[in-house]
Amino acid sequence: MALKIEPPLVEAARRGGPPLEELIRAVWPEAYRIAFAILRDRGLAEDAAQDACAAIAGSVRTLRHENFFATWSYRIITNAAISLVRRRQANQNADTAICYREPFDYSGSLDLQIALDRLSPVQRALILLHYYAGLASGDLAAATGLASSTVRFHLMQARRALRKALEVRNPTAPRTKKESASHVS
């Protein structure tokens, strides 16, 4: 899990001390990256990351234990990003893939980036949270507001779409047994 915040800092923020701003500064880059990876728009990502940081700072006192901070924060960040997508797509299904304008400026991950672009924002969020942040299906359900069974279905669909997109770009790559056998925790 990439969001690594010192437990004493979280504990101090829970007590409402001055480190609240320090906590925001620590969370902000990761909040922005996750939001951008889901939304693929700098303005929207900033907006979602601001919402998420405000929510994290405003309710960190309600957090039961600092050990849950990272998982809890990822849920808030993803929720903020997906809420933004849903607000902007009031007339269509939030799970529909939309056109994005701003590609990542990172050639090393170009094929993965293009493959991710083919997913819907919700599916991208699930892939990121599961494979990058290490969240289990229960947390994914809480973060996206979907039922656990729906989460598992979307994740399976997303993995299938990713695999297909990556194979098209690299047709000689061998498939592994683990790839076809793995499933959501």
């Binding site: 880059p29 991950s109 892939i127 494979y131 592994t176």
Partner: peptide, 30 residues
């Protein structure tokens, strides 16, 4: 190639390539 073991590292590398702007503390405070 799409093994589950590789995906976390690739996602991490991809996210590392995203440069976050400075934290807008005033906007978050408001």
């Amino acid at each position: 190639m799409f093994p589950d073991a590789v995906l976390p590292q690739r996602l991490e590398a991809m996210l590392d390539g995203i440069v976050a702007p400075p934290a807008p503390l005033d906007a978050i405070r408001s």
